[in-house]
Design a protein around this nucleic acid. Structure first.
Lengths: 131, 131
DNA sequence: GCAATTGATGTAATAACATTACATTCAAAC
DNA sequence: GTTTGAATGTAATGTTATTACATCAATTGC
């Protein structure tokens, strides 16, 4: 799907995430946007839902937090698996993609006749600087 | 680490998870164990912490829920990566292990000098029966 | 025996994350 | 200019997880 024009709330949430060093929880985003008129969690969650749908944002399941997508090409083809390293020290999150893993997972799920809808790969540990 | 003798609470939580068809949230476990004397979430969370440490239980990050480990061999060597398929239809969770993926992830994290502590792989979708 | 330590437990309160329900506003389409 | 559908506003509530503090039980060392 082509990414449509973002609404006001979506734009503000996207900006908050883009300007952040690392991942943010929905409530952290809410706090950042309070002085710009945000009042309730739902405003954030609704915007996040759309941004996730457009592939502009990823949800980190193991952190209950969100990051702006860092992949350079456009987000139209959301067919690939996205994986993350997450540093427990500095909080840095690195997004990466790997077709070998994708293919292996495809083979394995196909073997159990499992129809994949969403794949989560998150690696917690310590980055080079924090090791 | 060798798995030590489980305490009373740990045994009860383990039993609840083992007898369950699918994953359970901490609060669902609490409700199951109320008539056996459980009163507070912390009793469950503390038991789960230990069971996770011993490798007898896995946490499903994308569900905020827990499952008993189904791998047959003993749980002493917790060196492998565990992956799951999770059916959105029936809730069935299937645990699997794959050395090819493990090796590929090791190579990729090594390339960024990232020290892995815990790897989460969860595949949401529909199983054969629910497809 | 009996402090001292350590790990497990009990209880209450609170924090953190997410959704439901319902009313309202806005803009495009007709 | 009304209808329609998406987005928004607001309040309340539901769900998941942790902090703080008191108590109990088993072990260790004297």
């Amino acid at each position: 799907m082509a990414t449509p024009q973002l609404t006001k709330n979506q734009t503000m949430v996207m900006a908050a995430l883009s300007h952040s060093e690392g991942p943010m929880s929905a409530y952290t985003i809410l706090d950042k946007l309070r002085d710009q008129g945000f009042r309730a969690p739902l405003q954030v969650y609704r915007a996040l839902d759309k941004l996730l749908e457009y592939g502009l944002v990823h949800r980190l399941e193991s952190l209950n937090a969100f990051v702006a997508c860092t992949c350079p090409h456009d987000h139209e083809h959301d067919n690939g698996v996205t994986a993350f390293t997450i540093c427990e020290g500095c909080g840095q999150v690195t997004e990466f993609h790997d077709t070998a893993i994708e293919q292996r997972l495809t083979a394995l799920t196909r073997a159990q006749n499992f129809k994949t809808e969403k794949t989560t790969i998150e690696i917690r540990g310590h980055c080079q600087s924090c090791a």
